[in-house]
Design a protein around this nucleic acid. Structure first.
Lengths: 391, 391
DNA sequence: TTTTGGCACTCTCAGCCTTCGAGTGCTAAT
DNA sequence: ATTAGCACTCGAAGGCTGAGAGTGCCAAAA
């Protein structure tokens, strides 16, 4: 019968705060809550008083723990699936855990290195940044991951028309966000080099530096007259411009590893898994995430637990988000979805590391390139080529 | 007691062929087999003699059917999950059904139109052809779908270097398969317009029309000397060329709608679903499909039933493949994965329709463009810009 | 010789009951 | 304030049973 178990200070009794709100749990309650959450995260089974008495070594007996558990339950941080089962954290319980109790996990040196290594590799392998980041995050956390690159409205900085032959030319548009878009145009009629030059001039004069909504059919008509275009070439180029602009506006999203959900016991029910996977699969839904992230400024990790999510489909899952800086005005977001019983501390640590690493690489490398090591430059500046896509 | 049930010809008795092999099932056996397969496809439940006696109206009693079923079972076309259950088709049973019994389904006019309409829409909406085709196929069949565009080794037809400012230029490569690749290059040092011109000339002279393996470091060194390059610019451009060439070689693949598996009763077991989904998620695996398709020449539909698949993961699923013609030498493949109890006739019909429609659109539109209707041209020739990706 | 009605038999599935064990809540003692 | 102890609750697992679906076979009918 050890006596190591310090009695509560009077004011703390019953878990009431000394002043006001519910923020004051006795030290012991905190420890117990944390133990329950961690044990439950590990095993996915309701946690009983005995287990806690053994693992967390407060010097209390299971009976004492039982009393504490009952109070934590009446405070709304724990609940019982049924009368004679152990306790399971409620969303509020997880919230307290994430906010106050969870120890910010330090990844081991090996892990950190492993992540850095993968980052280097992956960023080179696939050429679509958003896709690689998402793939990487998913495989590092073992949860489905999403990545978003929200670009602010871009404009076309400059047009180049490359004359190939009488029936063919290429449109190249250099965008304000330093990406380059192009298209090959084949014509059923001949066009001269001079026409191409004229077109180029007109478009550079009238269609650069403006956003999509500023392109009026009037302007297109005007351009058509200006170059004396009877073949609809102006239209072709204008369409390209419009398309490229609207494309630059919509955030690029990627979701990878949805199938990993099936490994989690909470998604053993195929109907549940299906519902969530379908939700994640729709890019529209993913695009809504940044508005949700709003709170945390750069680098911050935001955790949305169960019902804290707005989307009905996510109500009993959790989402962890981190933002990274893409150098120009672009902000990227990476996130992970999982059961509420998610390993928050590890996920948060990994997401944070990835986000920071990305910000450094992209943020730093972008303005003045660091050197002329080909491989590096290529990977850093690279942006628009095309590859095969996973999932 | 109807007498409509024609007796078997003597030679057909016991399902033995008149000459040689097993290809001769009595008419009645065929009808019964087809009925079992179709009923099982519909309900996913073992089919009993009574059900068949009622649905397929051969004028026989259930007892007769029972005898026939027993023979079909001993021939290996049907099996029983347990002694007192109905019959379920074996892979061989499905094979006979697909080869001989299945009526080539004619899609209704509405369906055909619906598909054509979606094709028009989708081909315009998303800009990545392979992705759209895959998405479309999946949503039309309600099974996971994959699409592959296998390109024969391409070469670079021509380089253009666009000078932006002292620190910046764009590389544009026009490929032999009529796609265009580009990259923006930022430099830490200044380059003159003249240098850019020189580089362009050298690369157009020495690095066009060759495949990746023909680019030697010797040639790059030579080019470097030719333009008197001390800044590694040659390397940057060469790297780009190599990358773009190898990228053009690897087949572009896309898999969409893996989550649809979860709707099928045979994948209610999350472990199974997970295994298959993970398999499908890996682009490497998908790239192996064309070799499997080998058999069918263009337009043909190929069906792989259960154990006919080479990959272990597909051994109790089926795959339906169709190829389409992408105009140039490129062949595309679309496919659908599902349980062996797949609705082969509908899926085959839909896949066929999609493949034919694609071949027409892409094959026809490519050589001499049909007219100068912008929207159309844009969609048909379009190939390289970049959008958001589903899934 | 083929078909058919009939019957015995088999096997699964769903429901019900029982048992077992984990875990609680309460109480009395410290 | 803590704890040991005990009665109690409840779900999960196992066994049993009856119902139902379906078969296989046989003898009679066509």
């Amino acid at each position: 019968m050890p006596k190591a178990c310090a009695p509560l200070r009077r004011a703390e009794r019953n878990g009431r705060a000394v002043f006001g709100v519910s923020m004051a749990l006795s030290e012991r309650k905190k420890k117990i809550l944390a133990a329950v959450v961690e044990e439950y995260i590990r095993t996915a089974e309701p946690v009983g008083s005995k287990t806690i008495a053994q693992t967390a070594n407060l010097g209390c007996s299971s009976a004492t723990i039982r009393n504490e558990l009952a109070e934590l339950a009446s405070l709304g941080y724990l609940e019982q699936p049924h009368t004679s089962a152990g306790r399971v954290p409620t969303p509020q319980g997880y919230r307290i855990y994430v906010n106050e109790l969870m120890e910010r996990q330090k990844l081991s040196l090996e892990e950190t290195e492993a992540i850095n290594r993968s980052l280097n590799e992956k960023l080179g392998q696939l050429d679509d940044l958003v896709s690689s980041v998402s793939t990487l995050t998913s495989s590092l956390t073992n949860y489905p991951a999403m990545a978003i690159a929200a670009a602010p409205a871009a404009t076309i900085r400059r047009f180049d028309l490359i004359y190939i032959d009488a029936n063919t030319f290429i449109i190249v548009a250099m965008m304000s966000n330093d990406t380059v878009k192009n298209k090959l145009v084949r014509l059923p009629v001949s066009v001269g080099q001079d026409m191409i030059t004229k077109l180029s001039a007109v478009f550079n004069a009238n269609f650069t530096g403006i956003t999509e909504d500023k392109i009026s059919s009037l302007a297109i008509r005007a351009a058509e007259r200006a170059v004396d275009d009877t073949m609809g070439l102006t239209g072709v180029i204008a369409s390209f411009a419009i398309e490229v602009l609207s494309e630059a506006q919509t955030a690029e999203t990627y979701v990878v590893g949805a199938n990993r959900l099936l490994a989690q016991p909470e998604y053993q029910d195929p109907a549940k898994a299906h519902a969530l996977m379908s939700y994640l699969t729709d890019a529209e839904h993913i695009r809504e995430l940044p508005s949700v992230y709003s709170g945390g400024s750069g680098g911050d990790i935001k955790v949305l637990i169960g019902p804290e999510n707005v989307a009905e489909e996510l109500k009993d899952s959790s989402v962890v988000l981190a933002s990274y800086d893409m150098g120009d005005d672009t902000k990227g977001l990476i996130g992970v979805v999982g059961p509420t019983r998610m390993d928050y501390s590890t996920v948060a640590a990994k997401l944070g590391l990835i986000a920071r690493a990305l910000s450094e690489r992209l943020g730093a490398g972008s303005q003045p390139p660091p050197g002329l090591d080909n491989k590096l430059i290529i990977k850093e500046i690279k942006e628009d080529s095309h590859g095969q896509h996973e999932q």
